[in-house]
Computed example of a mutant assay.
Amino acid sequence: MRLTCVPGKDSILILPPTYGMYEVAANLNDVAIQRLPLTADFQLSNEIVAGIIASDAKLVFVCSPNNPTGNLLHAAAIEEILRGFRGLVVVDEAYADFASAPSWTTRLAEFPNLVILQTFSKAWGLAGLRLGMAFASPEIIGYLNKIKPPYNVSEATQQHALAALAAGGHFDNLRNDLLVGRQWLAERLPAVEIVDEVFPSDANFLLVRFRPDATAVYDYLLARGIVVRNRTTQPGCAGTLRLTVGTPAENEQLLAALREFTY
Rank of each mutant, 00 (worst) to 15 (best):
N251T: 11
M1Y: 08
G84Q: 10
R242S: 14
K122N: 10
L241E: 08
L108H: 03
N71I: 11
T262P: 00
G246P: 11
S11L: 04
A94V: 05
L82K: 04
A101Q: 14
L221M: 07
G181V: 05
G239S: 12
N71Q: 15
A99H: 09
E187W: 05
L36V: 11
I53K: 05
S64K: 04
F135S: 13
A123C: 10
L38A: 03
P112W: 07
A166F: 09
N230L: 06
I33M: 06
E260K: 12
N173Y: 06
L179K: 14
E250A: 15
A57E: 02
L174I: 11
R2G: 02
Y218W: 13
P7G: 08
I226C: 05
G128R: 10
F205E: 03
G70V: 03
P149C: 04
A54S: 14
D213N: 15
T105G: 01
F61R: 01
Y22A: 06
W104C: 02
A101S: 14
R188V: 08
F199V: 12
F199L: 14
A223V: 09
H170S: 13
A50V: 00
T18I: 02
F199Q: 13
A191F: 12
P212D: 15
P212H: 14
L15E: 00
L243G: 07
D97S: 13
L108F: 08
E260D: 15
P68N: 07
P200M: 10
A163V: 05
P138F: 05
F261R: 08
K58N: 07
S45K: 03
A223P: 03
D97G: 08
N71A: 13
V60P: 01
L254F: 11
A32S: 12
